[in-house]
Design a protein around this nucleic acid. Structure first.
Lengths: 232, 232
DNA sequence: GCAAGACTGTTACAAAACGCAACAAAACGA
DNA sequence: TCGTTTTGTTGCGTTTTGTAACAGTCTTGC
């Protein structure tokens, strides 16, 4: 569960953001000034989201402070528009810069991309997720059912499951599955996706009769339905 | 001197860009289609700048192609505006997404930030690496299992393991293994790679029954699955 | 409500890719 | 040279995936 530190003085925005992110399995801490934020060590977080316009010390100053002691990914938010501002922010050590008002999904995508990159370069794939007695471990790509029964998955089955779980609570379109799992442009006649889903369902049901996690949404794809808990 | 690969069909833009970047000490290669670009190995570059709208295969497809075999940083350029486009591009594996017309200085800033992030962590993985109680030491080419048991590897086995670990978390293609370990152009009939993998698996399993780190990904190669930690 | 058509679920079979044992050849060290 | 280790080859068994076929389910227009 990635730990996010949001530094933002507008209470409405920070509340919205932290709700949005917590629902997507981030662990959020909010500070409303740079001074406040500096009571924590930067290394206690996996990523920073920093508003540039803060009372007292600015977001840019905070960014420099973070960079003095760590490499923790940092994204700047700002109501000010313009290339120059963005360039300046990035040159000072921010990894990305998003203008307000922003689409929360875009922030999420950029955060994910950034975490993905920093994990990749650290050669770590993040850990386990669990749901209804099941556990999926990304580090070794293994799935365990209730009573910790190991359920071997083929590489495509694993890829499918990962996509579905990563997307929770959003359904994944058939075409996207085609793209991400099979690396093809799926034409509508192609049944590979359904069959893959069917096979995965069957395997999971063989271990746990109640394992109906994959819901079909007609014309829209498949949705993974379960309370997912991250564990690192 | 960072090596940049620019994939852009608009000759004016690519010329401008490569001039701009070369003046700032980048080494540029330009392709005007994805198909063209795929004649090079992704690993020959430090960063990609990819226009999304290309004749033939699209920039997004190219991005996915790159991600299948490498972690090389990649920035998408696009004339199309809108959050959704940007989100989609980033979700497909791009590190950043810039809309045209863009300020070259902003592109440069973002490239620099990205290179900074990927270098910062990458190069310290050089001496020993460890995973799940195992240790691989590059300096003397020795592998130790749990309880520090020394497991002697033949030179090809070591070469294979090194390739797999260096690539984490990306799978290594069979052809690449042929190239890098045996120094041959692998023809599809050749079974040497599987057998080498099989032998390495067997050796490691003899020391540690849970040592199933090498995952087969059908048609795509082998992937090393473990949380790798560098130590110098 | 009902039938036609579109979408999805599932099975069965075939083809391809891969795992691995067993043996042969080659390389290597003393 | 001999014995040991490593690597290549062959062959067969297993797993995974693609394909076709058919059954079920939802939607829509009437």
């Amino acid at each position: 569960m990635p730990r996010v530190h949001i530094i933002e003085d507008d209470a409405e925005i920070s509340a919205l953001l932290s709700t949005y992110l917590e629902r997507r399995d981030f662990n959020c801490v909010v500070s409303n000034s740079a001074e406040d934020a500096q009571n924590h060590s930067p290394k206690d977080f996996d990523i920073f989201i920093v508003d540039i316009m803060l009372p007292g010390k600015s977001g840019l100053d905070f960014c420099q402070w973070v960079r003095q002691t760590s490499n923790v990914p940092l994204i700047i938010l700002s109501a000010e528009k313009g290339d120059e501002k963005r360039i300046h922010g990035i040159e000072l050590g921010a990894d990305d810069y998003l203008e307000k008002p922003f689409n929360p999904r875009e922030l999420l995508a950029r955060m994910t991309a950034l975490l993905r990159r920093s994990e990749r370069t650290e050669k770590r794939i993040s850990g386990k997720v669990s749901f209804n007695g099941w556990t999926l471990d990304r580090s070794n790509q293994k799935l365990h059912g209730p009573q910790n029964i190991h359920l071997p998955l083929s590489s495509t089955e694993y890829a499918l499951l990962l996509q579905l779980i990563d997307a929770v609570p959003i359904p994944v379109q058939r075409e996207d599955i085609g793209k991400l799992v099979f690396n093809i442009d799926l034409d509508p006649e192609d049944r590979r996706v359904d069959i893959l889903v069917s096979r995965l369902r069957k395997k999971m049901n063989a271990v746990d009769a109640n394992a109906d996690f994959i819901r079909t949404i007609r014309n829209r794809g498949y949705q993974f339905c379960a309370d997912i808990q991250g564990q690192g």
